[in-house]
Design a protein around this nucleic acid. Structure first.
Lengths: 206, 206
DNA sequence: TTGACAGCATACTCAGTAGTATGTTTGCCT
DNA sequence: AGGCAAACATACTACTGAGTATGCTGTCAA
């Protein structure tokens, strides 16, 4: 048990991350203050700064967790003997519900997708954001490989693969921008939504 | 000539908006300070506060201009006697180059698309952001109408129209997230990019 | 029992920033 | 010429918010 790595997280720390994700989502990561997060927790700054050395690290941990969520669910559904279409279909059908399940985290990480350069001063923050970028690249490559294989095999139309990849990734993350869970929404809404987006995504590649 | 409305903008004001868009894009609208914008202009705060009453209004004007850019270009290409496919194709082929031409503005307005609620305190700011939302809705409805017509006529596959619309809009704005103009890029890159995205968008609807 | 440490709360400091108040220059009209 | 705004620059104020230093309390091991 020498290497528990990421799973080593106290319940209190996880609770803080949940609160931070929620508040960062609502107010924006830069606008929201540490006191706002503390208020959401019903506690004070002291608790947060006991577990995290800075606001930047807290933000980075939220983003890192967002990346981890999908990275733990999606790779297992990839089958080497399946067709590119089937693989991609399963990947998207796994991706979307997982993203919507952990929505606040992804609303936060998307704020960094717009390209605002982090002003991470400390070395730890820079290392964390590098890890995030690495994980994102790893995740993107899962889709890139499936696209590549599909284009070579003729399942997908041949076209600029980088453009196709970026468009595909944004398409399957589209609900993060507009989805808001509602009490009166049908039981099957997320499943239906995932199915429709999967169809659109696959169709866009043919 | 009683009603010049929006076109009434001094060159200095436009120059400030350009600088603000550039800086807000790079640093993020909340992180960037008015002094940052002034430094970009090679002047001081005084100039900015002479033309804009607050930072919130400045931000709103940038966003409003972003919306105006596409709203002036796209509607004219819609033809009543054309098929939904042709109309949509022309709309996207107009939309993308115009967005990339005025990229900083759209990178700023996209920061508000993530759903962070503006904390506009003044009445003027609230009114401006309401106008922005109105213009955005107007623009969306251009696409919604084409989608609706196309689905009824059988050109497009019948499906949940709101989901399809949101996905389509995000797809045609995807380059805003990743595109960065490069000196060594081919002359035809933007045109090629627009063509590929148009094909993907139309395919996703069939 | 105690003491020592984790897990927080309280009460500060201090840098940065939005906004203001007031000077200073430049063009323009008469 | 001269005065009078517009278009800025300069020099403040007031406040927010990140980070820190220190105090308090329960728990657990020896």
């Amino acid at each position: 048990m020498a290497n528990t790595r990421k799973t080593e997280m106290s319940a209190s720390k996880a609770e803080i991350l949940d609160a931070a994700a929620e508040v960062f989502m609502r107010l924006g990561a830069d606008t929201a203050s540490i006191d706002d997060v503390a208020r959401q927790l019903g506690s004070t700054k002291g608790r947060i700064y006991h577990h995290f050395p800075s606001k930047g690290v807290l933000l980075a941990q939220v983003c890192l967790r967002a990346a981890d969520f999908v990275l733990q669910k999606v790779p297992p559904v990839i089958a080497l003997d399946a067709t590119p279409e089937d693989n991609l279909r399963q990947m998207i059908l796994t991706h979307i519900p997982e993203v919507l399940r952990t929505l606040p985290y992804h609303k936060v990480i998307i704020q960094s997708y717009v390209g605002v350069q982090q002003k991470s001063t400390t070395a730890l923050e820079r290392e964390l954001f590098a890890r995030i970028q690495q994980e994102r690249k790893t995740y993107e490559n899962l889709f890139r490989d499936v696209l590549q294989t599909g284009m070579q095999g003729g399942s997908f139309r041949a076209q600029n693969i980088s453009i196709a990849l970026q468009s595909l990734l944004l398409l399957i993350n589209a609900p993060v921008f507009w989805y808001r869970p509602r009490a009166d929404e049908p039981e099957t809404f997320v499943a239906d939504l995932s199915a429709q987006l999967t169809d659109m995504a696959l169709a866009s590649l043919r």
